[in-house]
């Protein structure tokens, strides 16, 4: 009989376990380390709603680190699955929110919302989230339609080139907004490098909800993404509704990147590096690649966040510095090796 294409339940349990272990580890470690036992018991009591001791450890763990690490995990998972989906859809291993300029687009939206005080009554930070999503989608549409005009095959070079141009353009807009923003400058600078230091449980709920919806949509498109990853023409020939699937994937991706950016700022290269490394292990089939990217992205970003917290302790590096450092080196490696492969 035919073997299944996705992972088995046991593999999923192992993945989940890996994420939980990393989460506990990242919550314990930091400038003040808290023993694992105390951390676990604190979290457990909080979940059960039991009475909590009034200690520094409690404040650090439950009020500062736990919401932050949860947000980091979801942002990592989101950026990673978005990168994997775009790399499949565009049949381009260098596609990602950062290289395509989608993250920059989302940043413009978020910054506009802060600078002009756009808000949605009743929802804290709602204006920033919505503006980030809208601008992420607009950026993606602009970049792809420009690329299509130049070269309808959407080749690697064209997309990267236009992504770079768009990112520079977005950078100048952001600088312009910063100049006019006055008091808001400090919170705006935060978007450009990415940081999750101020994350709240509210943020965690927002990103978790967005992730649940968008990841479900992307996972349901795994087969279509396989077809796109072979070739868009081939996808059309075998009966994929090419336009509809493309639109669905692009909307899901920009919504999820938009929410991620509105919470964590522009965190570069996660969506590029993680799916690429995952693909080396799982192969290009999206039934495995997408779920594996989710877990790998969560683990990677939680660890990167830990590094950003402790490496210059008590100072804190923006997380984007850590990921961009690792990411740009990997980017160069992928670019050169994919060039060589094509001869």
């Amino acid at each position: 009989m035919k073997k299944r294409e996705g992972f088995s339940l046991v593999t999923y349990l192992l993945f989940t376990l890996a994420v939980l272990v990393t989460l506990i580890f990242c919550v314990c470690a930091g400038s003040v380390s808290v023993p694992v036992k105390e951390t676990v018991s604190l979290i457990w009591r909080a979940i059960l709603g039991a009475e909590l001791p009034q200690s520094t450890a409690k404040a650090i763990i439950l009020n500062v680190r736990l919401p932050r690490v949860i947000c980091v995990g979801f942002v990592g998972a989101s950026l990673s699955i978005c990168g994997a989906a775009m790399q499949g859809l565009l049949r381009n291993p260098l596609a990602d929110g950062t290289t395509l300029g989608v993250s920059s687009g989302a940043s413009i939206g978020a910054i506009l919302a802060i600078a002009f005080g756009v808000s949605i009554p009743g929802i804290e930070g709602g204006g920033t989230v919505v503006m980030a999503i809208v601008f992420a989608f607009l950026a993606l549409m602009i970049i792809l339609s420009l690329a299509y005009k130049l070269d309808y095959t959407l080749s690697t070079n064209t997309i990267i080139l236009i992504g770079v141009i768009f990112t520079m353009f977005a950078g100048s807009i952001i600088s312009l907004l910063v100049t006019f923003a006055g008091d808001h400058v400090k919170s705006i600078m935060f978007w450009t490098m990415g940081s999750l230091s101020g994350s709240s449980y509210g943020n965690a709920v927002t990103i978790a909800a967005a992730f649940a919806v968008c990841a479900a949509v992307l996972l349901s498109c795994a087969r279509e993404l396989n077809a796109f990853a072979i070739s868009e023409d081939n996808a059309r020939n075998i009966g994929v509704n090419v336009r509809r699937v493309k639109l669905i994937v692009l909307i899901a991706v920009s919504a999820l990147i938009g929410v991620s950016v509105s919470i964590g700022g522009t965190i570069g290269f996660v969506g590029l590096v993680i799916p690429h490394m995952t693909r080396m292990i799982t192969g290009p089939n999206h039934k495995k690649l997408l779920p594996a990217s989710i877990f790998a992205g969560a683990v990677f970003l939680m660890l990167a966040d830990l590094v950003s917290r402790v490496i210059l302790s008590p100072l804190e590096l923006p997380i984007g510095v850590v990921t961009s450092f690792i990411g740009s080196i990997t980017f160069v490696y992928i670019f050169y090796s994919s060039r060589k492969g094509r001869g």
């Binding site: 049949r91 291993p93 077809a227 990853a229 075998i238 693909r279 290009p284």
Partner: peptide, 18 residues
């Protein structure tokens, strides 16, 4: 058909049933 990623022969043929 220019191909991008290292799908197996079986995976490509299987997509014919899409």
């Amino acid at each position: 058909t220019p191909v991008g990623y290292s799908f197996s022969v079986e995976e490509v043929v299987g997509l014919g049933r899409y």
